[in-house]
Design a protein around this nucleic acid. Structure first.
Length: 747
DNA sequence: CCCAAAGCGTCCT
DNA sequence: CGCTTTGGG
């Protein structure tokens, strides 16, 4: 959720940059965002409990895309839940079960495509799934860390201490956490915000504005949004003054104790606990000033301290961030370690060309020359557009049509890819002696991020959509298994590295490879880069469909791969495989401890269960494992947190407020929803019964909810009336408990 | 007219 | 998240 409207608020200072302009930087990303997107491919499998790791692939493709552009990705995972947010979690999980029920019902009726939509809405990304991605990250030596609590705070910390140069995220919260460079927005530019100037605003004032307008931890004072918060803060300067003024003014009803809640919230943004990869222990996001004393409750809200040994295991992904018990490897057969070389042999069989080139690529210049020749050969604006889609009826239909086009397009592209891929694939992937040399020079390159580039004061991160557009076009294609992900990394020589690279150590800030930033101004269009020939059409169609209003694709892009290639990609493919046997053993031992979890009720699948529920069984195991944390302490702590969480949630958070005066409201809504239901003859009930939007008997004019739903259903009914009907039926059934017969219109 | 609030589609192949 | 609508000041 974040801060509603904060990104649009800051839009005037947002600076879109192409990924290639960020070469040489280390950028942190939230791993759960990618994981969640990855689940769309396999939501049904996940929801029905079938084993899959397909969701790993999407994230790894993004990782490689970034690396391809010379960016060092640093993946940050969400960890334990913070008390103030637990309510959000609960509501989400409630929604998920609701959607799962819908999905199952639809499946039972044989409506599989509709079911899939609901399956995708009930997928939860678990720490165990994150661990699967972590396995892949380890295999490719991608730095990562699991936050003890929230990824946002962890991301902010990594940037604050200089481990990363910037952050890629769509979550506006990051700025509130004090980040300097987030998705193209630079803290330094705040003064330039056009509409409402933030010139001279302190961090505290900006934070206050965000909190007052409503955030994940604290609902806003009803009727107060960003603009009002801004106005009042400009006038009264501090949050305390603003709150007092609002009370005095009397126009808005400020809840009792709001100021205290505000101050607690502020502490969560300021002092939330994060993992320090260097010191290997938890620290506060920003140091607590000597004068400031935190109450017991505060400690709870910012996330309680965790013994360093445990914290480290959590950070590495070996322990579940909620239970602190060993993480369960839900798919041991998924081993993204690259134990054997890629199947180049088969490629060679199919491509005589690749043989010659593979010889060439072993002299270091090959990659550069490869790109060079390409850059000069390609014509900048060669893309020819897809024929404008014909609008059928309404915008939705138009989009649907576009989707279809895209599909066709992709099918064509895929076929072509199969042919082209063959010689391009090994071209890009196979390490050259030059690349290997990097590791002779600097063996820890894979795990030590580059220092911030001198020229990178203002780190601007490209919109992810932007990245997406080039992804298929420019990312070197790696071998991918049909099911799930296969690491492209080749392990040539297994170096014995006593310590796992992740969370990585940063022995020193050193630049492994130099990149002349002036050559970054390689004036080549996006489409001229190496592999652009194949997917032009697709690029075009994709931009049309997903961002109709934007012209981002039309703007010529600078292309840096030629420069970044020698560094980053080299690294991707020829890092020594650190995940050697010793490490494997260590992990195996850890996941299957001698005390055998099999006998305990906690056992294999019980990792979601709070420790307190299974305490007796776990105690011995935990002690045997020497996990460090006293189980009794864990229990007490958890109970305390629960109490605090519940208290906070019911009082201050969005869901709490909604829950209190919610039921009536919800019933109201469902009743109205019925009015909009499609009847058995396929016509839209609401449209028929009140063609002018005038509802007889309604005490008020139709709510926007009705209007929206009418719109939505109407659009859908053009695709298929039964669709809207069924979904509405089930949803209604679920949320109100009413029977189908009670609702009348059933087909 | 501006603002807050609420809802929907998007995200994946 | 972005986009849209609606209702209230």
């Amino acid at each position: 959720m974040g801060i509603q409207g904060l990104l649009p608020f800051l839009k005037s200072i947002q600076n879109q940059r192409h990924l290639s302009e960020l070469a040489g930087q280390t950028l942190a990303v939230d791993g759960y965002v990618w994981l969640h997107r990855g689940t769309y491919t396999c939501s049904t499998e996940l929801a029905t409990g079938r084993k899959t790791t397909k969701y790993v692939r999407y994230a790894m493709q993004r990782v490689r895309l970034l690396r391809y552009y010379g960016i060092r990705p640093y993946i940050v995972f969400d960890g334990g839940r913070l008390p103030a947010k637990r309510g959000t979690e609960e509501e989400r999980s409630r929604r998920r079960t609701e959607n799962l029920a819908c999905a199952k019902e639809l499946t039972a009726k044989g409506k599989h495509s509709q079911a899939r939509e609901f399956y995708s809405k009930c997928v939860d990304v678990t720490p165990e799934m994150a661990f699967q991605l972590i396995k892949a990250l380890r295999a490719e030596d991608v730095p990562y860390v699991v936050a003890p609590y929230e990824a946002d705070a962890q991301l902010a910390y990594l940037e604050r201490v200089g481990i990363v140069d910037g952050i890629i995220t769509e979550d506006s919260d990051l700025l509130v956490f004090g980040c300097k460079n987030v998705t193209g927005i630079s803290r330094d530019d705040f003064g330039k915000v056009t509409e409402c100037s933030l010139r001279g605003w302190t961090d505290a004032q900006f934070r206050a504005m965000a909190i007052l307008s409503g955030c994940d931890y604290l609902a806003s004072i009803p009727g107060v949004g960003l603009k009002t918060a801004w106005t009042f803060l400009r006038k009264y300067r501090t949050a305390e003054n603003v709150i007092r003024a609002l009370r005095l003014e009397g126009k808005k009803s400020v809840p009792q104790g709001y100021l205290e809640a505000f101050m607690t919230t502020e502490k969560v943004f300021l002092y939330q606990r994060v993992y320090d990869p260097l010191e290997e222990k938890l620290v506060n996001l920003t140091p607590i000033p000597p004068g400031e004393a935190l109450s017991q409750a505060d400690e709870c809200f910012i996330g309680e301290d965790i013994a360093p040994a445990v914290a480290k295991r959590v950070a590495r992904g070996d322990a579940n961030p909620n239970t602190h018990l060993p993480i369960e490897d839900i798919d041991r057969s998924f081993e993204p370690r690259s134990t054997k070389p890629l199947p180049f042999k088969s490629h060679d069989l199919n491509s005589s060309k690749s043989k010659g080139k593979s010889a060439e690529k072993h002299n270091g210049a090959s990659i550069l020359s490869f790109f060079g020749s390409n850059a000069k050969g390609a014509s900048p604006k060669a893309a020819k557009s897809v024929a404008p889609p014909q609008m059928v009826a309404g915008r939705a239909s138009g989009k649907r049509r576009l989707m279809g086009l895209m599909h066709d397009d992709m099918a064509i592209k895929r076929k072509r890819l199969l042919e082209i891929e063959i010689d391009q694939n090994d071209e890009v992937n196979v390490p050259s002696p030059v690349q290997s040399r990097f590791f002779g020079i600097h063996p820890t390159a894979g795990s030590s991020p580059l220092g911030p580039t001198p020229s990178a004061d203002t780190v601007l991160v490209v919109d992810e959509d932007d990245a997406e557009e080039v992804e298929d076009a420019e990312e070197p294609d790696h071998v991918a298994q049909e099911d799930g992900y296969l690491s492209p990394t080749r392990s040539f020589k297994r170096l014995s590295t006593p310590d796992l690279s992740s969370p990585p150590q940063f022995p020193e800030r050193s630049r492994v490879f130099c990149r002349d930033s002036s050559t970054g101004d390689f004036a080549v269009d996006l489409l001229s880069s190496p592999e652009s020939r194949k997917p032009m059409r697709r690029l075009r169609s994709k931009s049309l469909s997903s961002r109709e209003g934007k012209t981002s694709l039309c703007t010529p892009r600078k292309s840096g791969p030629a420069n970044s290639m020698d560094g980053s990609v080299a690294e991707v493919s020829c890092r020594p495989d650190k995940f050697d046997d010793a490490d494997t053993m260590e992990i195996a031992d850890f996941t299957m401890p001698p005390c055998s979890f099999g006998g305990s009720t906690q056992s294999s699948s019980g990792l979601d269960t709070p420790v307190s529920q299974e305490g007796a069984d776990v105690v011995t195991c935990v002690e045997d494992l020497d996990l460090g944390d006293d189980i009794e302490f864990i229990e007490i702590r958890r109970a305390k947190q629960d109490a605090v969480a519940r208290g906070w949630w019911s009082k201050w958070s969005h869901g709490g407020a909604r829950e209190r005066d919610g039921p009536k409201d919800r019933k109201d809504r469902t009743l109205r929803r019925r009015e909009t239901t499609v009847t058995s003859d396929g016509l839209h009930g609401a449209l028929r019964s009140r063609p002018n939007g005038k509802a007889g008997g309604d005490r008020k004019a139709p709510t926007n909810g009705v209007a929206n739903r009418e719109g939505g259903s109407a659009r859908r009914s053009q695709v298929g009336p039964e669709w809207a009907h069924n979904v509405e039926m089930i949803r209604r059934h679920r949320s109100t408990g009413m029977t189908e017969s009670g609702m009348g219109a059933v087909g």
